[in-house]
Design a protein around this nucleic acid. Structure first.
Lengths: 194, 194
DNA sequence: TTTCGAAGTCAACGGCCGTTTACTTGGAAC
DNA sequence: GTTCCAAGTAAACGGCCGTTGACTTCGAAA
């Protein structure tokens, strides 16, 4: 019989900060792929190489843990790269080609959102943070009249595309080439940006 | 102390077909507002005025119940009205003004989808049924080259708008007038339809 | 009115999950 | 090497949920 999971891991030394980080990373991945309900505290703890009790010790509760996950994801995962030229095309490429496995990727906040749509507490956390982070940045990049509404429309399109492309995966998307999707998406994004 | 819930209800006579229908209605409402995980069999049964055991008797299991809910919703809730003129504008009005409380409304399939995004079994049911109902109808109305991909893009936009407008509700959408949203959405829908 | 099958209920089982309490262990400081 | 607090674990509790099997009740047919 081979070694157990725990001994296969690098067996991190006792380091509260590093352990905290490992838990947050594991929680982000679980939340982005499974959503609030299906992401269990025991699973997250096992991914991080610790016990469920320790998770609650550090973050108070499951809700506290995922609140910090969402806040961090919204702070880190800036949807926009540095240059603001070709905004529609940039955004389109992010959601078409962005890997879903990178826990700090720009796609993560979208997956977090749509996998937690059924959880009122998670939605509350998103609403509170979104307006003053991603949407504000987007609105500044867009500018002009109705910048706030247009920014929300852009976010809506990105989220909708993400749910179809990364979760539902209808036949039409599976068959289509990536560049075809980029072209269509950036075209309708441009219609919103103006 | 007032009467109990059961006596406040019309106390439907023993009618298997009617009871079945009542359970399906209640399940549809619960699934559309709470998603697969949070919609409990006991709650659904109570809404329909029966016991959880009877629900499992009629539908075999929770999964069987919601499979039928999804299939029915996709069959009934045709996104498109009869006339095919101004398709973008029609669709935009549906998701902007469509009430979320009507269990047979055209908006229901979208809410079912985005509230069940975290549940793999529900996603599987959607994928299987979507391609041969809503997406096929949409593609026929759109026509031309890449009709299938364009139809999926339209569904993505509608779903994304629904999650923002009916679930997340950012400030920008709360402040905006309905007609402004219809204008923006139909414009970017038109960019996809071509 | 009696009968009998279908409609519906009741209560319990087993499992999973978030949380808590008491305990053990590691490692740095002296 | 001893001490001692923080890091981490083990185990259990209580609650909720889906499911099941045995029981009860309605209502139509005879």
């Amino acid at each position: 019989m081979p070694e157990r999971r725990a001994s296969a891991r690098p067996k991190r030394k006792r380091d509260a900060a590093a352990t905290r980080e490992a838990i947050l990373e594991a929680a982000t991945r679980r939340l982005a792929t499974q959503g609030y309900e299906r992401a269990g505290v025991r699973e997250v703890a096992a991914d991080a190489g610790v016990t469920a009790a320790l998770v609650n010790r550090y973050f108070g509760s499951k809700e506290g843990l995922f609140a910090e996950v969402i806040a961090r994801a919204l702070d880190m995962g800036h949807l926009l790269r540095d240059g603001r030229a070709n905004l529609a095309d940039q955004l389109a490429r992010v959601v078409v080609y962005g890997g879903e496995d990178a826990p700090d990727g720009v796609l993560t906040p979208l997956l977090l959102l749509l996998h937690s749509a059924a959880e009122p507490r998670a939605i509350e956390l998103f609403r509170r943070d979104l307006d003053r982070t991603q949407l504000r940045l987007l609105a500044e990049h867009i500018g002009g009249d109705d910048a706030a509404v247009r920014a929300a429309m852009v976010l809506a399109q990105l989220t909708g595309f993400a749910i179809l492309h990364h979760v539902l995966r209808p036949e039409a998307f599976a068959d289509a080439r990536g560049e075809k999707l980029v072209a269509l998406l950036s075209k309708s994004l441009a219609a919103c940006i103006g």
